[in-house]
Design a protein around this nucleic acid. Structure first.
Lengths: 83, 83
DNA sequence: CTGGAATATGCGCCATATCGCATAACTGTA
DNA sequence: TACAGTTATGCGATATGGCGCATATTCCAG
């Protein structure tokens, strides 16, 4: 599995795939999030230092959320300790 | 379960809990991440618009990563379509 | 209670995310 | 080809993240 945490660019790819799966244009997604089409474009093409807020609102608009999990091979018990 | 995606402040709480679990001070975590103690403090107290990069490096230093998952009730199949 | 570590807060500074607007480049379709 | 929709790029302006440094506040062992 790709390491999302080390390569922020992959977040852009993921967002793009999910946006298209939802049948939205960048402009439409921008409308739902209060961001510009240009900003969505930057994020999808791998904008390396976007703000957390921005990413969160985009994910929310796509009915996604993120979970923080142990990187090291996660026993189930270890996952539970986080949430 | 708390909705991490809607309340960025909880990310700070999570980071703080995990940092303490690792036995690190803010300054030590700052050392590992190239961030200042003050910056770690801001993030933990709920800095609403930190940069994604910053959060990622903190998570990496704590041996955490994040995964993006469907918000709506995640069937296993639905998770798979993402990664 | 006391002292030292840990954490929070304030200010000036620079880098940059996002904005707004314009426009170019690309994508498909007739 | 030509055209419409979509996406990428450029520029000036504004807001703010993170830095460095100083200091206040909180926490905890003794």
């Amino acid at each position: 599995m790709s390491d999302l945490a080390r390569d922020p660019r992959q977040i852009g790819n993921l967002i793009r795939r999910m946006r298209k799966k939802r049948g939205l244009s960048q402009a439409q997604l921008g409308g739902k999030t209060g961001l510009r089409q240009e900003t969505i474009s930057l994020i999808e093409t791998g904008h390396p230092a976007a703000r957390l807020q921005t990413i969160l609102s985009v994910l929310a608009a796509l009915d996604l959320e993120f979970r923080i999990v142990p990187r090291s091979k996660a026993g189930a018990a270890d996952i539970e300790e986080i949430f």
